[in-house]
Every structure is written in structure tokens, then in C-alpha cells.
């Protein structure tokens, strides 16, 4: 493998990969995270046909 021949590839991969995963989850989180009772709140809301 070409990539493995780069010196200290694993170390860089570990560090950068860790940051990338956290960054990705932060970005997705802004879009996908909701209040804990989201599904219950929707149900009790306007009683169906509501906008998510």
C-alpha cells in the first residue's frame, strides 16, 4: 500500500481522523439533533399533518 509507506501515517491518520469524525458529527448534529421529546412533542402538537 502506498499510504502505509508514508512515515508516521498511522499517527497522522489517528489524529486527523479523530478530528474529522468529531467535526462531521458536529455538522450533522446541527441538522439532525432535536429536543429529547421531539417525537412526543410532535404528536401532542397540532395532532397530525404537522411540519417537522
Amino acid at each position: 500500500m502506498m499510504l502505509e509507506e508514508i512515515p508516521a501515517f498511522s499517527a497522522m491518520f489517528g489524529f486527523i481522523g479523530c478530528l474529522l469524525i468529531v467535526a462531521l458529527s458536529k455538522i450533522l448534529g446541527r441538522w439532525l439533533q432535536r429536543r429529547e421529546d421531539y417525537y412526543r412533542w410532535l404528536r401532542s402538537g397540532s395532532g397530525g399533518g404537522e411540519q417537522g
Binding site: 508516521a8 501515517f9 498511522s10 499517527a11 497522522m12 491518520f13 489517528g14 479523530c18
Partner: peptide
């Protein structure tokens, strides 16, 4: 062994 430990150690630093 070395590459696995490197990987885990540096992701620990990232953590």
C-alpha cells in the same frame, strides 16, 4: 503493533 498503537495513541490525543 506499532502502527496500531500509533493510531490509538494519536486518536487519544485528538480526544
Amino acid at each position: 503493533l506499532i502502527s496500531m498503537w500509533e493510531l490509538l495513541l494519536f486518536s487519544f490525543l485528538g480526544f
